[in-house]
């Protein structure tokens, strides 16, 4: 998986837990990469799972909730590194509409080694839509957080409902409702 997700996670840890705690987790994790991540590199996504698991002890919340909080954080990282995708957009739906056919498609063509998730957007009404998530990494929790991050970014209060289509979680439908 693309390095930006990993560097983003490390700075997420530093922000939330502080330097000392972050370095302790890194040492404890004892990973091949020694967590010396760069945004331009690519790394085994299992390292991320491992780091989430370890840090959940420090956070004193479940890995699921760590993933969700990270997702929110990841959204801000992604949008500040690629601001062109949120420019001139006024609602998270406008952004979601472009994930599959614009954002992740461009990511894939610039970095052929990546495999971004398929995120199929379907509008139900002006304030309701579904996001059909498909990824072999089963990062639905991160996905949930990214959606929340988008809501925050556009100042929209979102109601998010998840519906797993299989046990593994490689396919999920997120129903998103904008409350105000």
């Amino acid at each position: 998986m693309k390095g930006i997700v990993f560097t983003s996670f490390i700075s997420f840890l530093e922000n939330e837990l502080g330097l000392i705690e972050t370095e302790s987790i890194i040492i404890k994790a004892d990973l091949n990469s020694a967590c010396a991540y760069t945004t331009v590199g690519s790394y085994d996504f299992k390292e991320l799972l491992h780091l989430i698991l370890l840090s959940s002890q420090s956070f004193k919340i479940t890995p699921k909730h760590v993933s969700q909080r990270f997702g929110s954080y990841l959204f801000t990282t992604l949008t500040s590194s690629s601001p062109q995708y949120v420019k001139n957009k006024h609602s998270c739906f406008e952004l979601f509409e472009t994930i599959n056919n614009v954002i992740h498609m461009e990511v894939k063509s610039i970095y052929p080694e990546t495999t971004p998730p398929r995120v199929h957007f379907k509008r139900i009404s002006s304030s309701a839509a579904t996001l059909h998530y498909q990824s072999h990494r089963c990062l639905g929790d991160v996905m949930y957080g990214v959606i929340e991050g988008a809501g925050n970014y556009f100042n929209e209060k979102l109601l998010i409902e998840r519906n797993r289509l299989n046990k593994k979680g490689s396919e999920e439908v997120f129903t998103v409702i904008i409350l105000q």
Binding site: E23, A36, T38
Partner: peptide
């Protein structure tokens, strides 16, 4: 025992490795 300065030192080492990596990749 992790202190602020050992943490900083560890981070520095990490950043240096990352930088090397990035430079190699750039190369």
């Amino acid at each position: 025992k992790m202190t602020n300065s050992t943490a900083l030192a560890a981070k520095l080492v990490r950043e240096q490795i990352a930088r090397k990596q990035a430079e190699t990749l750039l190369e």
